[in-house]
């Protein structure tokens, strides 16, 4: 190797300069451009699809699930309950996570058994009526949705707690239900945050 050291290091020198140029283009200009477009054209979405109470207070995001339980962790009867969450103490967006428990995990097995019994008793239905999403934790721990089946078994309990007719609550549920996107993508679902917010808004 008789080539001078400067020539051998040339690719490294080019690389460093190119990395800096690309960082400016792809790591600064590009995200700022997208931020500009987002804030100008889609400000609602870009800032987290926030939802508001009738009084105008920000009450969270339509996309991020929330806890609807008392300080001692017991579920509040007047609210539709979301799926189980293992993000922090439940629905903690600073710690999004799934359980990562395997299909043969004794811990998961026990959790599912306990959740099934609790949900059946809480809503006054049989254990076989409790749907799968009600007893399994989502991947993000922030899933704002439940299945239509899980929402239906909660209608009577919510109606009783709020002194509303079952029909009224069922109609509200209907309005918070979304079908499959384009008729075939994803699953039908009920947004728990929006539904509970709407129920509170009835005054």
């Amino acid at each position: 190797m008789t080539r001078p050291i400067t020539r051998r290091l040339a690719p490294l020198w080019i690389s460093l300069r190119l990395m800096l140029i690309l960082t400016v283009l792809l790591g600064v200009a590009y995200p700022l451009l997208v931020t500009g477009i987002g804030q100008a054209v889609f400000p609602g979405q870009a800032n987290g699809s926030l939802v508001h109470t009738n009084e105008g207070r920000v009450a969270g995001s339509a996309l991020i699930g929330q806890r609807f339980d008392a300080a001692d962790g017991s579920p509040l009867t007047q609210y539709f309950q979301p799926r189980p969450s293992v993000a922090g103490d439940g629905y903690d967006p600073t710690a999004s996570a799934g359980s990562n428990l395997g299909p043969e995990s004794p811990e998961l097995f026990a959790q599912i058994r306990e959740r099934t019994a609790q949900i059946a008793a809480f809503n006054g239905v049989t254990e076989s009526e409790v749907p799968v999403d009600a007893v399994t934790a989502s991947g993000s721990g922030l899933d704002p949705h439940i299945s239509v089946e899980y929402a239906r078994i909660q209608v009577r309990r919510v109606a009783e707690a709020r002194g509303l007719s079952v029909e009224r609550v069922a109609a509200m549920l209907e309005r918070s239900t979304t079908g499959r996107d384009a008729g075939f993508l994803g699953e039908p679902r009920v947004n728990v945050v929006e539904l509970n917010l709407a129920l509170d808004g009835l005054g």
Partner: peptide, 8 residues
Amino acid sequence: MEGKEQRF
């Protein structure tokens, strides 16, 4: 459904 999102 453990670890899966309802919307998907």
